[in-house]
Amino acid sequence: MPDELVLLTFPSTHYALKAEKVVRGAGLQGRLIPMPRELSSLCGLALELEPEISVPALALLQAAGVRLEKKVKVVKDRGRLRVIEQLEV
Rank of each mutant, 00 (worst) to 15 (best):
A19P: 07
I84A: 03
P56G: 05
Y15E: 11
I33Q: 08
G30A: 13
L61R: 00
G79N: 07
G30C: 09
L39C: 12
A19L: 12
M35L: 11
L42E: 09
P11H: 13
G30D: 04
L45W: 07
A57K: 04
V6E: 03
G44M: 10
D3P: 00
G65N: 05
L60N: 07
M35F: 12
A46P: 11
L61P: 00
K71D: 01
K76Q: 13
L87V: 06
A26I: 11
L45F: 11
S40Q: 13
H14K: 11
E85W: 00
L42V: 09
A63Y: 01
S54E: 08
Y15A: 06
A59D: 14
Q62S: 09
L68G: 02
P36Y: 09
R80G: 01
T13S: 14
E69S: 15
L68S: 05
V72T: 06
G27I: 07
S40T: 15
D77A: 15
T13K: 12
S41I: 12
G65C: 03
M35E: 05
L5F: 04
L45N: 02
R24C: 02
L42N: 10
E20W: 04
L58F: 01
P34V: 15
G27H: 09
V6N: 05
L42W: 13
L5S: 05
